[in-house]
């Protein structure tokens, strides 16, 4: 009853404030000038990013340096998480010992196999069409990371490691992605003297669709990097609790 009173009070106050404010608020109907500039220039115009998807062209071209450092923050966070769970060589060897045996009934396991193949295709489609439709490297990478997560849930993490995707490999793939992003950002510096300039070094159009210059490359590398980074995080999180307690020397 006490909770209900609190909720009702909040609801009534919110409604009251809203009705009071409604007399003075005018809902926005026009664009801000900066937004209009981006809408006009993203594909046509002199300062074009050659991409019909305006959000992606702002993200990786007009405000590209912003996104570069955002990617840096994201990967620093993943490195920080890996450092918190740091294991030495023998411990990480021991964490890999285990039976790769599915714990769940057969239908779940078979469905997981099929879904993994479909999710990989869907995530690649999201990432590779970031310059045409909503989506892009980060979104695709998050979808990609679902596949190893499903495998961990259905088959245990040891199956993933036995088939070649362990933490070290995931970090290597992530580093390749980061290196690709950095190279794509720095290549124009050698040719024309701008950082993260996407025209005209990279092709603006190929195979019948606009590629958006460097946008497709950025999306591809970000896809790899995000997917592999999340996979490393999931692999660490799925180490059984007993093993970790043993490593930490916790008796409880």
């Amino acid at each position: 009853m006490k909770r209900l009173t609190g909720l009702l009070t909040i609801l009534i106050i919110t409604l009251g404030v809203a009705i009071y404010l409604a007399q003075n608020i005018i809902p926005p109907e026009n664009l801000h000038p900066l937004g209009e500039y981006y809408l006009e220039n993203s594909y046509f115009g002199e300062h074009s990013a050659k991409s019909p998807e305006v959000v992606t062209s702002i993200l990786w071209d007009y405000r590209g340096v912003d996104t570069l450092f955002e990617t840096a923050v994201f990967f620093l966070a993943i490195i920080g998480s890996l450092t918190i769970f740091r294991l030495n060589r023998e411990q990480s060897e021991e964490a890999k010992q285990g039976e790769p045996k599915p714990q769940l009934p057969e239908p779940v396991v078979v469905v997981t196999k099929l879904t993994v193949a479909m999710i990989l295709a869907v995530s690649a489609s999201i990432a590779l069409h970031g310059q045409l439709t909503p989506g892009g490297g980060f979104q695709g990478g998050s979808a990609l990371a679902v596949a190893p997560l499903l495998v961990i849930a259905a088959y245990t993490k040891y199956a993933l490691e036995k088939n070649g995707l362990d933490k070290t490999r995931a970090i290597i793939i992530r580093s390749i992605g980061l290196l690709g992003i950095a190279l794509t950002a720095l290549t124009p510096l050698l040719v024309s003297g701008y950082i993260m300039q996407n025209q005209p070094i990279f092709p603006g159009e190929a195979l019948g669709v606009p590629l958006g210059g460097s946008l497709v490359l950025y999306n591809l590398f970000e896809y790899l990097a995000v997917g592999a980074g999340f996979t490393a995080v999931f692999l660490l999180l799925s180490i059984p609790e007993e093993k970790f307690k043993k490593f930490l020397g916790v008796r409880r």
Partner: peptide, 29 residues
């Protein structure tokens, strides 16, 4: 982009069809 919307919802539907029974079975088990 109507084909993209249609295709995305079709694929999502099929994945739901595959994944929902697996989830129900896992929960019941």
């Amino acid at each position: 982009h109507k084909h993209a919307i249609a295709g995305a919802s079709l694929i999502t539907g099929i994945i739901t069809l595959l994944a929902a029974p697996a989830g129900a079975t896992a929960l019941a088990y």
